[in-house]
Amino acid sequence: MSVTKATLVNSFTLDGKGGNPAGVVLNADDLSKSEKLKIAQAVGYSETAFVSKDDEVDFEVSFFTVTDEVDFCGHATLATFSTLFSKNLISAGKYKQRTKAGILSVNVEEDGRVVMEQACPSYLQTFEYDDIAELIGLPFDILSSTQLPIEVISTGLNDVIVPVPLGYLDKLEVDNEKLSEFCDKYDLIGMHAFELNDSDSEFTASCRNFAPLFGIPEESATGSSSGALACYLVKHVFAGEETFDFVFEQGRAMGCASRLSASVKLENGQVSKIEVGGEAKEIGALKVS
């Protein structure tokens, strides 16, 4: 394998800071799966995106953690199109990317902000509070006090969405070994925990995401899970509208706060479109041989 350059990008930054780092490798057409995995391991971030040509749509993009390939990654998608835009390889406009989660649209705004479409939700299964309580170190009575369901939702990746009472999100103590076993057993990528904020907050909800099965103890911004959470909120918390706009905070407990926006459109009571957006900032580059 020749020398490959990975651009390093923070995605879903908050006022130019924080965010979740991802690697982006352009012109990846000739890289094998094993070479991509090796590069992703050298980059060391939760995900690295690899951009290739496609005969039917604008780009094919594949996503690798440090352990394996995954079908989709929101923050690495944002990093990818922000990189293409900043390097003048694309201009503002709408594009389509082929991923293992399907062909998805991406809109790049004039200021470089990226808004990505996600697959419409699949509501896969629910869990009882006592299935989850010991995984996150919360007593059953506290976890159950939300009276909201714990549900697996996918807009590209299978995540279990876990509501916790306001004030308890930063107190979670996740058992990585048990959570990994749980995710492996139920075919999950990870867990997305959230607390609903007061109405005077700029954020609809604050979130934490854990995916230790894929080498990610915690990450500071998760685009795919934000789409799933937006669908969860429309289903279980908010009602009466055809379009919903949310703003989420993630990474606070890591000292790396991030901002993610999500919008959901309904037709005849069913989700017809999901978009997740944010800003990104290039932070460096890495050459891998």
Rank of each mutant, 00 (worst) to 15 (best):
V108D: 03
F182K: 12
K36S: 09
D68A: 15
S62L: 07
Y95R: 08
E128D: 15
L31N: 00
S86P: 05
S11N: 03
I283H: 00
L286D: 01
R208N: 05
D71Y: 10
A221K: 09
P163F: 10
V106D: 05
K178S: 14
I274P: 00
H192V: 03
S199C: 02
R259C: 12
L266W: 04
S224H: 01
A79H: 02
V152L: 00
F64L: 11
S272E: 13
T4C: 10
K185Y: 02
K235P: 01
P217K: 13
V57E: 00
N107E: 15
C183G: 09
L166K: 15
M191E: 06
I153W: 05
G284L: 08
S91A: 14
T13K: 07
F63Q: 01
N10E: 14
F244S: 06
A280D: 02
C183T: 08
L37S: 03
Y232M: 05
A92I: 02
A76G: 12
L172R: 04
A253P: 06
Q125V: 07
D131M: 09
F12D: 02
S263H: 09
E110H: 01
P165E: 12
G93C: 08
S34P: 02
E47R: 05
T13E: 11
S91H: 13
G255N: 06
K87Q: 15
D130A: 10
P217R: 05
V271T: 12
L37T: 10
L37W: 09
T243L: 13
L169A: 03
Q118I: 05
N27V: 04
P217Q: 13
S199W: 08
A42P: 04
G284M: 01
Q250A: 12
G269P: 02
P212W: 03
S32F: 05
F210A: 10
S272N: 11
A262Y: 08
D198G: 11
K287M: 06
S226P: 04
T243W: 07
E117A: 08
G156M: 06
E249F: 12
G269H: 11
F50H: 00
S46C: 13
E60W: 07
T83G: 08
Q41H: 09
Q97D: 02
S272K: 14
I103W: 12
F214L: 15
R252A: 14
A257Y: 00
P217G: 07
F85R: 03
E181K: 14
S180E: 13
I189M: 12
A22I: 04
K5N: 03
F238Q: 01
E218K: 11
K33A: 15
G23V: 03
V51C: 11
T243R: 15
D111F: 09
E177F: 06
T13S: 11
L169G: 03
V174R: 08
E35I: 09
G112S: 12
G215L: 11
F246W: 11
V234L: 07
S225V: 10
S11K: 00
D55H: 02
F127K: 00
F194V: 06
D245R: 13
E128L: 13
V9H: 01
K273T: 04
K273I: 06
V237L: 09
E202H: 05
G74K: 05
T146R: 06
I153Y: 04
A228L: 10
A40E: 07
G240S: 11
G223S: 04
E134C: 12
E267A: 14
S2C: 02
D187Q: 14
E218L: 02
Y95K: 10
D200R: 10
D170N: 15
T99Y: 02
D159S: 07
A221H: 04
K265Y: 00
S261M: 13
T83F: 10
